[in-house]
């Protein structure tokens, strides 16, 4: 379990109720999004299952006995989706991917890493990117495979790389 420094809002009971006042709510949602992103980053997780959210200390502060309800969480995630920082994976919107960097940012990050290491015009497997020795210390090290693929696809659209299929694994060629 990741240890992060909880923001002051986490111990503020109204934080766990979606505020009806629009200005207040904007501030609240922003705080939640920051907290969620930070938490996911620290725990190296990228998906949230709304149905199991209340088991996580992120959404359940036992010390003040407050829980974030599923509906409230859905509201927050939908708001995140508007700014491209989250996306639902299934149609019933139960499982969400959370991007603490947007896919664009991830893509750029990977591309600059590739350029810096002289990997242009060469091929590396996705496993190398994810778990390889070369990427240790990079932010995308250990990144969820699905997100990695999506990030690379944004690069592909820009024509900076090309994804390719091998027999049992995927690779990418940077240009």
């Amino acid at each position: 379990m990741a240890e992060i420094s909880w923001p002051w809002q986490y111990n503020f009971p109204p934080f766990f109720t979606i505020q009806p006042h629009s200005e207040t709510r904007a501030k609240q949602l922003e705080a939640w999004q920051q907290l969620i992103a930070e938490y996911m980053k620290a725990s190296k997780k990228s998906t949230i299952d709304i149905r199991e959210s209340q088991n996580s200390p992120l959404f359940h502060n036992a010390s003040i006995n407050r829980k974030l309800s599923s509906e409230a969480l859905l509201t927050i995630l939908e708001d995140m989706a508007k700014t491209g920082r989250a996306a639902p994976i299934d149609k019933s919107k139960n499982i969400w991917e959370v991007y603490w960097h947007s896919l664009d940012e991830w893509g750029n990050m990977i591309y600059s890493w590739a350029s810096n290491n002289g990997l242009n015009n060469s091929v590396c497997t996705l496993f190398e990117l994810q778990e390889g020795d070369n990427t240790v210390g990079e932010e995308f090290h250990g990144l969820d495979m699905n997100i990695l693929v999506k990030a690379l696809k944004t690069l592909e659209v820009k024509g900076k790389c090309e994804l390719m299929e091998f027999d049992d694994s995927q690779g990418v060629k940077f240009f």
């Binding site: 002051w8 009971p13 109204p14 505020q19 207040t24 609240q28």
Partner: peptide, 17 residues
């Protein structure tokens, strides 16, 4: 700002703003 919980409805100073 409001705090709805099983304990009922309570109001706090709006620290968010």
């Amino acid at each position: 700002c409001r705090d709805e919980s099983i304990e009922g409805l309570a109001f706090y100073p709006n620290l968010f703003l």
